[in-house]
């Protein structure tokens, strides 16, 4: 799984901590999500996409 979290985070000038606080998760969860090493629940994927003003299918790309 690949994600555009890092790219969009940079676009909105958000740190991993800022995004974690916005979504209500721990910073490590954002780290693992960015690396594509954690499959989030649909709810979390939706929340991250909303925080980064995009959609789930724009944010996560499955091989």
């Amino acid at each position: 799984m690949k994600t555009r979290i890092k790219e969009l985070r940079a676009r909105y000038d958000l740190t991993q901590e800022d995004l974690a606080r916005k979504v209500g998760v721990r910073r490590e969860t954002i780290v693992f999500l960015e690396k594509g090493k954690y499959n989030p629940s649909l709810q979390l994927a939706h929340d991250v996409a909303k925080a980064l003003k995009t959609t789930v299918d724009e944010l996560f790309m499955f091989k």
Binding site: E17, A20, R21, G24, V25, R26, R27, E28, T29, F32, Y38, P40, S41, Q43, L44
Partner: peptide, 14 residues
């Protein structure tokens, strides 16, 4: 330190 910054102790991953 994380609690001070407003992050939760437990989330879906933990």
């Amino acid at each position: 330190s994380d609690a001070e910054k407003g992050m939760p102790l437990i989330d879906e991953r933990t």
